[in-house]
Design a protein around this nucleic acid. Structure first.
Length: 891
RNA sequence: GGGCGAUUAGCUCAGUGGUUAGAGCGCUCGCCUCACACGCGAGAGGUCCGAGGUUCAAAUCCUCGAUCGCCCACCA
C-alpha cells in the first residue's frame, strides 16, 4: 500500500494531528477523489456551494462540508462513481467591499486606482488568499475532486455566463429598463430586493401641513421621511375617503419648494393610516412610484448616487439625507406647518453587504424577465422532479416563485462578469457571442461597452452546469449532469437554489438536481447567530486543531436534523472526540490480540457462528446496517450516526468485547477473534462517512494484522458500504444474550445498592425456567467476572428464594437471589420488593386492558398484538414469582 | 399583514402513529477492574407547552390557544 503511516504502537489516545495530514495526502495522491466515468453506472454528484474566494471558512461551511462529504463518501462506498466538485465564487459586492475597505485604510478609494487598477488589486488579493479556503476544506477531510475545481470567473463559467446572457437577451428575457430600484449609496450600485435587509427602526411619523393653492385651507400629510418632500409631485388620498373627496383635483403648494402639485385619488392610500393623506414621491418610494405611473405624475430625483441631495433639492443640495432631514424639519417648524410628531417604528432597508441604508432611486438597469423562467422552475418542484428536504421549504419556494418579480441583474461594480452589451454612438445595443468591432445596424465603429457587471448570483445560478463544461458538449457534462443533491443553507434558498433551478432548466432543459437538502444555522452556545460584528464566530480550523476533524464533523452532524438550527458548544465537541477515542481504544484492544494470532482466515465473512455471543453480535451488526441504510436514504444522517455510535459503544465495547475476554483468557474455542475483527471492520466502514480520518487509520492498521482477502479494497473509503444480511439475524441469540445482560445488571445493581466492596466475592442462586439453564451455564464465567459473583443455576421448580440472608431480583430471565448474610434488612427488602410488585401490577393492568379491548385485538397489526401478549405473559410470571417470595418473607 | 418553525430530563437536543419516551452534558454514589479516567459500574431526574378532537393506539395526525424565534411583504 502507498502509505507509510499506520505502523508501530498505537498510542493510548487517538492523536488526530499526526494522522489526518498523511491520510488526506494518501487519499488525494492515490486519485480516490476522482471518479471514473463508467456509463454502466449512475454517478452521484454534489457540487459544493462555492465560498467567497477571499473569505475564510466559518462554521456554516464546516457543516456544509460535513454533510456533503458524508453523502459523497457513502455513495462512493455504495459503488457509485462519486463526484464532489469544489469551487469558489468571486462574490462581487462582498469582495469589492472588502478590498475597498482595505484601500480606505490607506485613504484611497477604488476611483483613485481606476477600473483596471482596482481589478488588478482584487486579483492580487485573490492570488494571495484564494487558496486558503481550499486548504481549509482539505483539513476538514472533504473528498472533493481537486482536478475539477472551478472559480466563477474562470474561462468556462465565463463562457456560460456570456452564452446565457446572449440567449436570454435574444429571447427578450433580458431587457434594460428605467424604474425605481434599491440603491446602496456606499457601494454605489443597484441591489435586488433579496440584497436588502429590513430592520425595524424607531423614527417619527411627521404630520406636515400642505396649503391648498386656492387658499381655501390645507391638507395634512404624514410621513416618516420628511426630507423626501423636496421631491414630492403629488398628494394622494383614498377615493373613498369622504374627508378629502372635496380636495381631489385641486392643487396644493408644496412647502419650501413652492411648486404646485395635484391632489389625486388612489386605492393604495390607506384610510386608517396617518392622516389619510399621502405625499407622493415617485423618485424615492416604490409605492409612490407605482402611484405616479398610474396617474402620469412627474418624477423628481433629489438624490445623487452617493446619497447626498442634488440640485433638485434647492437649498439643501449637497447635504446628506440625515442633514437634510434636520434642515427640512427646522424649516417646517419655522413656517409653523409641522403639526406634530408621533412615535413610530418602521422597516428601514439596509445593504446586505455593507449595512448602509438603502435608498430607492430611479435608475437604468438590466433585468431578467422572470415570468417565463419561473413557470417551469415551479413545475419541477410541484411535479416532484426536485424534492426539498425538509419538505416544509417546498411551500416557501413555491410562494416565492408565485410572487416573483423581475430580477435586476446589473451592478454598478467593477469586480465581476462585465455585461456583454455594447452601445454605438447612435444608441444601438449590440449583444453577441463575439465582441463586436462595429455596429451591425449603422456600421459605426465607435462602440462602448456597458460599464456594469452582473449580479454575482447570475454566475452562481449557472454553477450546476457551468462547472461541468456547459455550454460545451463535454464528457463531464454528458455524464455527471444533472447532479444529485444540492446541499446548502436554507438562508440562500431564493438567492441561489431557486435561481439555479430556473437557469439550469432554461439552459439544459433539465432540472439540475433531484434533491435539495437544506441545513440550519450553526449558532453559538447561547443560541445567538454567529457574526463578525458580534464577535462570537468560531473558527472551525481552531476546533480541528483542538478536537480533530472527525470530532468536529461528528459534532456538527449528530443529533441534528435537516433545516433545524443547532448550537455548537464545547460539550458537544468533547463528546464527539471521546467517541472517536473510544473507537480508537476498542481497535487498539482488538488489534493487539490479533497480532500473531492464527485461525483468522474467515474474518471477512465468518462462516458458521457456533458461539451464542458471536451469533448475537453479528446479528446486531446486520440489524444496525439495515437501520443505517434506511436513515441514510431518508436523509436522517444524525439518526444514522446515533445508531452506529450506540452499537459500537453500548453493544460492541460494553458487552461483546468484555464477553470475548473470557474466551481470550481461557483459550476456549471457538475463538472470538475472527468475529471481533469482522464486526470491528464492518463498523469502521459504517462509520467512515462520519469519521473518515480515524476509520481510515484504524482500518489500515487492522487489515494489516489480518490475513489478506481476495481483491482487498485499497482503503476504507473505497470499501463497500456494509449491507444487512437478514440471514444473519438471530432473534434467539439476541434474546438469550439479553437475558445474560439482564442478570449481570441485576447483580451489579444489588452490589451497588447494598454497597458491597468491589473485591468481595458473592454467591447467588439463579432460578430459571426449564430448558434455559444452559444459556446461563455457558455464560457463567462471564457473569462471574462481570458481577463478581459465583452463580448456581437451578431450574425454577427448585427455587427457594426468600430468606433474611438473600437479596432478590425478579427478572424476565429468572429469579436471582444473592446471598448477603447479615446485610439484608428484612423490612427494607420487603418494601423494595413490594414497590416493585406494585409497578409490575400497574403495568399488567395496562397491558391486559389493552388485550381485552376487542378493537385493539382486531384492528392492530398482528405483531403488535403478539408483542403485547408476550409482555402480559412475562409480566404475570414475574408477578407470580414475586408474590411467592414475598409470602415466604412474610411467613 | 401573510407564512413557517420551535416548545420533550437541570442544560443542549434526538425521536416523521405501536417498548414502561431516549442521548450527550450536568447531578448523586462507587471505582485508576490487565483497550480506553477522552474511562468503567450503579442511580436520581420527564402532567412530551395548554385545551379540544381523530384513532384500537398520539410526544407523533387535526383544530384552537399560549410563549419564543425565523422568513416573506411597497401601510407612507
Amino acid at each position: 500500500m502507498a502509505r507509510a503511516a499506520s505502523t508501530g504502537e498505537m498510542p493510548r489516545a487517538y492523536d488526530p494531528g499526526s494522522v489526518e495530514g498523511p491520510i488526506y495526502k494518501f487519499w488525494n495522491e492515490s486519485g480516490f477523489f476522482r471518479p471514473e466515468i463508467d456509463h454502466s453506472k449512475k454517478p452521484f454528484v454534489v457540487i459544493m456551494p462555492p465560498p467567497n474566494v477571499t473569505g475564510e471558512l466559518h462554521m456554516g461551511h464546516a457543516l456544509t462540508i460535513a454533510v456533503e462529504d458524508l453523502m459523497v463518501r457513502w455513495h462512493r462506498m455504495l459503488g457509485e462513481p462519486a463526484l464532489y466538485l469544489p469551487g469558489s465564487d468571486h462574490a462581487g459586492i462582498a469582495t469589492q467591499v472588502v478590498v475597498e475597505r482595505q484601500l480606505a485604510s490607506d485613504g484611497l478609494s477604488r476611483h483613485d486606482l481606476g477600473r483596471d487598477g482596482f481589478i488588478e488589486r482584487v486579483w492580487s488579493w485573490v492570488d494571495d488568499y484564494g487558496d486558503r479556503i481550499y486548504r481549509q476544506t482539505e483539513r476538514l477531510g472533504a473528498s472533493c475532486d481537486w482536478s475539477r475545481k472551478a472559480f466563477t470567473l474562470d474561462a468556462g463559467p465565463a463562457l456560460a455566463v456570456r452564452t446565457t446572457f446572449v440567449n436570454l437577451y435574444k429571447k427578450g428575457l433580458i431587457y434594460k429598463g428605467t424604474r425605481i430600484t434599491n440603491w446602496c449609496p456606499r457601494c454605489r450600485t443597484a441591489l435586488s430586493d433579496l440584497e436588502v435587509k429590513h430592520q425595524d427602526e424607531k423614527s417619527g411619523l411627521y404630520h406636515i401641513r400642505y396649503p391648498l393653492e386656492d387658499g381655501s385651507g390645507h391638507l395634512t400629510i404624514a410621513t416618516t421621511r420628511p426630507e423626501t418632500m423636496l421631491g414630492d409631485t403629488a398628494v394622494a388620498v383614498n377615493p373613498d375617503d369622504e374627508r378629502y373627496s372635496q380636495f381631489i383635483g385641486k392643487s396644493v403648494k408644496l412647502p419650501i419648494m413652492g411648486r404646485s402639485i395635484p391632489v389625486i385619488a388612489d386605492e393604495a392610500v390607506e384610510l386608517g393610516f396617518g392622516t389619510g393623506a399621502l405625499k407622493v414621491t415617485p423618485g424615492h418610494d416604490p409605492t409612490d412610484y407605482e402611484i405616479g405611473e398610474r396617474h402620469g405624475i412627474d418624477t423628481v430625483n433629489i438624490l445623487n448616487l452617493d446619497g447626498t441631495l442634488n440640485e433638485n433639492a434647492g437649498e439643501f443640495a449637497g447635504l446628506t439625507v440625515d442633514e437634510a432631514r434636520t434642515g427640512v424639519l427646522a424649516r417646517l417648524e419655522e413656517e409653523g406647518i409641522l403639526e406634530g410628531i408621533e412615535d413610530f417604528n418602521h422597516a428601514v432597508g439596509h445593504c446586505d453587504r455593507c449595512d448602509e441604508v438603502v435608498e430607492p432611486i430611479v435608475t437604468d438597469q438590466w433585468y431578467v424577465r422572470m415570468g417565463p423562467l419561473a413557470e417551469p422552475a415551479r413545475a419541477a418542484v410541484v411535479d416532484g422532479e426536485i424534492s426539498i428536504v425538509p419538505e416544509r421549504f417546498t411551500k416557501v419556494y413555491l410562494n416565492w416563485m408565485d410572487n416573483i418579480r423581475d430580477w435586476p441583474i446589473s451592478r454598478q461594480l467593477w469586480w465581476g462578469h462585465r455585461i456583454p452589451v455594447w452601445y454605438c454612438e447612435k444608441g444601438c445595443q449590440i449583444v453577441e457571442m463575439e465582441d463586436p468591432t462595429s455596429c451591425p445596424e449603422c456600421g459605426s465603429t465607435q462602440l462602448e461597452r456597458d460599464p456594469d457587471v452582473l449580479d454575482t448570483w447570475f454566475s452562481s445560478g449557472l454553477w450546476t452546469h457551468s462547472t461541468l463544461g456547459w455550454p460545451g458538449d463535454t464528457d463531464d457534462f454528458d455524464y455527471f449532469y444533472p447532479t444529485s443533491v444540492m446541499e446548502t443553507g436554507h438562508d440562500i434558498l431564493f438567492f441561489w437554489v431557486a435561481r439555479m433551478i430556473f437557469m439550469a432548466i432554461e439552459n439544459t432543459g433539465e432540472s439540475p438536481f433531484h434533491t435539495v437538502y437544506l441545513h440550519g444555522l450553526v449558532r453559538d452556545p447561547e443560541g445567538v447567530k454567529m457574526s463578525k460584528t458580534k464577535g462570537n464566530v468560531v473558527d472551525p480550523l481552531e476546533l480541528v486543531d483542538i478536537y480533530g476533524a472527525d470530532a468536529v464533523r461528528f459534532a456538527l452532524t449528530t443529533g441534528t436534523s435537516a433545516g433545524n438550527d443547532m448550537r455548537m458548544n464545547e460539550q458537544r465537541l468533547e463528546a464527539s472526540r471521546n467517541f472517536v477515542n473510544k473507537l480508537w481504544n476498542a481497535a487498539r484492544f482488538v488489534i493487539a490480540n490479533l497480532e500473531g494470532a492464527t485461525g483468522l482466515e474467515d474474518w471477512q465473512e465468518p462462516r458458521s457462528l457456533e458461539h451464542r455471543e458471536d451469533r448475537w453480535i453479528v446479528s446486531r451488526l446486520n440489524r444496525v446496517a439495515d437501520q443505517v441504510d434506511s436513515h441514510m436514504k431518508a436523509y436522517q444522517f444524525g439518526e444514522a450516526q446515533r445508531v452506529v455510535h450506540d452499537f459500537l459503544w453500548n453493544e460492541y465495547c460494553d458487552w461483546y468485547i468484555e464477553m470475548s475476554k473470557i474466551r481470550l483468557r481461557t483459550g476456549d474455542v471457538p475463538s472470538p477473534l475472527p468475529v471481533l475483527a469482522h464486526v470491528l471492520e464492518r463498523t469502521l466502514r459504517l462509520l467512515h462517512p462520519f469519521l473518515p480520518f480515524a476509520t481510515e487509520e484504524i482500518w489500515s492498521r487492522l487489515t494489516a494484522v489480518l490475513p489478506e482477502v481476495e481483491d482487498p479494497p485499497e482503503a476504507a473509503m473505497l470499501a463497500p458500504y456494509p449491507q444487512a444480511d437478514p440471514s444473519r439475524y438471530d432473534a434467539e441469540a439476541e434474546g438469550e444474550v439479553g437475558s445474560v445482560v439482564e442478570i449481570v445488571r441485576a447483580a451489579r445493581n444489588l452490589r451497588a445498592e447494598f454497597r458491597i466492596e468491589n473485591n468481595q466475592q458473592l454467591t447467588a442462586q439463579l432460578a430459571v425456567a426449564n430448558g434455559t439453564s444452559s444459556v446461563f451455564q455457558d455464560a457463567m464465567g462471564f457473569i462471574e467476572s462481570q458481577a463478581r459473583i459465583a452463580l448456581e443455576v437451578t431450574p425454577s421448580e427448585t427455587s427457594g428464594q426468600g430468606s433474611a440472608d438473600q437479596a432478590v431480583q425478579v427478572l424476565n430471565a429468572g429469579t436471582l437471589a444473592v446471598s448477603l448474610e447479615g446485610l439484608v434488612d428484612l423490612d427494607e427488602e420487603t418494601e423494595r420488593l413490594k414497590s416493585e410488585l406494585a409497578d409490575l401490577r400497574k403495568y399488567q393492568v395496562r397491558v391486559s386492558k389493552n388485550l381485552q379491548n376487542e378493537n385493539f385485538v382486531n384492528r392492530a397489526p398482528e405483531e403488535v398484538v403478539d408483542r403485547e401478549r408476550d409482555r402480559l405473559v412475562s409480566t404475570e410470571a414475574r408477578i407470580e414469582r414475586l408474590v411467592e417470595i414475598l409470602d415466604r418473607l412474610a411467613g
